[in-house]
Nucleic acid binder design. Structure first.
Lengths: 228, 228
DNA sequence: GCGGCTACTTGAACACGTTCAAAAGATCGG
DNA sequence: CCGATCTTTTGAACGTGTTCAAGTAGCCGC
């Protein structure tokens, strides 16, 4: 059934080339003039193709943004590698990962608002909670799994199992804060990270105190009960 | 300078009537067919005015939604009164307030996604974090101030001062969860409230344990340092 | 009543995201 | 090389949110 040529799933080398041309052009325009001011017509014009052609490869303008986001995540994963490889203490591991996100995403700060906007819509396939973005989310959570696993952190096993997802949620919170942060050089978001991470660390270490243990159990139970 | 007629700030009785007609028509159509499928033309048609007229009173379609949200908050404040008047224990007070929100907002669940979408955009004046919505946010936080003040809860004074805002944040989290909740009769969101509130209560009571006190101080310090 | 002012109202026009029927290329068995 | 079939490309057309120049209506001082 499957031929041995390049045409196995209806994709051609030429087609891939056009797809990438459209994406790179879109990303450039997004960066140069923002998402809102970049029109599909401008993207098509600049790429030297027709509007309809852009829609042949990307279902909507938002899908082009999704591609932007995927790129970001990929860059984040790369930026995080040396930190995860060379550091064992939990606090610098987590801080490093969060700060790396900030550095990677900084050039897109203005445009990030628009991303968050569509991401918050539950019906959008771009929502970080949607089924469609499950792979991207899993990859993102995996970074935090590494943060936990490679660290010297000691927490109860049940909590440890949920921790990567919780830290991912923490990052979502940081991103939400970052999107709204208008201070110079993102000073406030940096403060948030610098102070929140040690706080999280203290909290996690508290879970070994007997009187606190019950709360932890409750928390884990809560998380499990509301998972879909 | 100011005349004694009704024209004191450039608003006429007739104008107010038109404004309300447009709003009520819009809200009806939003409810009947959803936000996305309701066009500005349809609103104008149904209200018997021109499209431009709708824009004379409401700067954008989103502003009509904002009015929807204001209505919701007003209804929530009313629904919450008997609970706050007749109950002293912290857990039922907070649960009651959160459940009341769920009940008030339930008819608009489908349409709430769209609201959240624009709310997450930091440049939108509709964002719950924006300066424009400061009054609405303050009113909303005030409900949680009442939850705390009228309750038997005992927490350190510095934390107590920040608590209303923190509980408001908790509600934002619940709303975010609710928006994405597709379970029957919002079962998952109800579970979240029923289990999270006692957990919050336990956490707050823990703050009086000496070993935990330091973490609380850190938390309060963090909050204060990142406020604008 | 009149001139002028402000509040209000209109609807055509614009810009943008998106769709789609049709054309153009590419590939391949024969 | 032909015809068939699939992939790619086109650009006009549509629907929608939004703008704006122009018009209408009410009101006040005179």
């Amino acid at each position: 059934m499957i031929t041995l040529t390049s045409v196995t799933d209806g994709a051609t080398a030429k087609g891939e080339q056009t797809r990438e041309l459209i994406l790179s052009t879109a990303l450039r325009l997004f960066r140069e003039q923002g998402y809102g001011k970049t029109t599909m017509r401008a993207i098509a014009n600049e790429a030297g193709v027709s509007v309809g052609n852009a829609y042949y490869y990307y279902g909507s303008k938002e899908h082009l943004m999704q591609a932007y986001y995927d790129l970001l995540q990929e860059q984040h994963r790369e930026a995080v590698e040396p930190i995860l490889a060379g550091e064992r203490a939990f606090v610098p591991r987590l801080s490093g990962v969060l700060r790396a996100w900030l550095d990677v995403a900084a050039p897109y700060h203005e445009f990030a608002g628009t991303f968050f906007k569509t991401a918050a819509d539950p019906r959008s396939p771009l929502s970080p909670f949607s089924a469609d973005s499950q792979p991207a989310r899993a990859a993102s959570i995996d970074v935090f799994r590494q943060v936990v696993e490679g660290s010297d952190l000691k927490v109860p096993a049940d909590l440890r199992a949920e921790l990567p997802e919780l830290l991912w949620l923490l990052q979502m919170g940081v991103v939400l804060f970052w999107v709204h942060d208008q201070s110079d050089d993102l000073r406030r978001t940096r403060t948030l990270i610098d102070r929140a991470v040690p706080l999280v660390d203290r909290l996690l270490r508290l879970t070994r105190i007997p009187g606190v243990r019950g709360v932890t159990t409750d928390l884990v139970g809560l998380i499990r009960s509301i998972k879909p």
